[in-house]
Design a protein around this nucleic acid. Structure first.
Lengths: 130, 130
DNA sequence: CAGCATCCGCGTAGATACTG
DNA sequence: CAGTATCTACGCGGATGCTG
């Protein structure tokens, strides 16, 4: 692809040019990216392994996510010229530093999921929640 | 709404029922939620303030995001019965603990955005990137 | 095995108009 | 001011079929 300009909202570009957090969020603010980073934090994995480990991810989305993370320098991709082909994915040093944050999110999630779910129950049980 | 069942993929529910991280990601793995939490980490804000602070967010998305975070027990909403109306949003204690992670993500972003952008440039400049 | 290409439906988000 | 309601479109992501 030559043209990667798919934005139609000018203001969008404005904020993108000025806020690092948003630019990073544009890279990793999706579920699959976070899960991939979390998985690779456990060590190098092959494509097929990841597909099996991350239940519910389609081949397309996994490929897309990995390409994106590779582009961002968070994941590195190594192809072995063998038959059958073998492709391994690893976190770069940059990716490892980010993985620390993902890990803390995982810990937070496991500590607080009960509270969150309980809150949802209460919220949905309100009289006006119809 | 009575029916909130919009899932069609069985496997989806399977993972949702077993993995706290994914359940939490389903709540906060979008850009606006992270930005809202980051903003409220600076203190209580009114709706209009937030709309102006978070450039590019539509009124609809902001409302939607805030409702979702309120449901999760991350944000609390206080309505003042005045004219004109005044609505304030604040992080709950739960939200504050999550805000710590968001804050560390912000720091990471500002520290590493240059590296990420440079990596993207290099990636896009590959011969085969056509 | 690891991936690309294509098709397609549905949901998500934007725009707009109206209200307490 | 802080929403709700409705309409629309377009892009995301799933399913399928094919390749090195």
């Amino acid at each position: 692809m030559v043209t990667i300009e798919t934005k139609q909202h000018p203001a969008w570009d404005v904020y993108k040019a000025t806020c690092p957090t948003r630019q990073v969020l544009d890279c990793i603010a999706d579920k699959w990216a976070v899960l991939v980073i979390g998985l690779l934090n456990g060590g190098t994995r092959r494509f097929g392994e990841m597909r099996k480990s991350i239940e519910g991810v389609s081949q397309k989305m996994l490929t897309q996510t990995l390409r994106s993370l590779e582009r961002d320098g968070i994941v590195s991709r190594r192809v072995y010229a063998s038959v059958p082909p073998k492709v391994e994915y690893t976190l770069t040093p940059l990716g490892q530093s980010l993985a620390g944050i993902v890990e803390s999110l995982r810990v937070w999630s496991e500590s607080n999921i009960e509270v969150v779910l309980a809150s949802q129950q209460t919220y949905d049980a309100r009289p006006e929640a119809e």
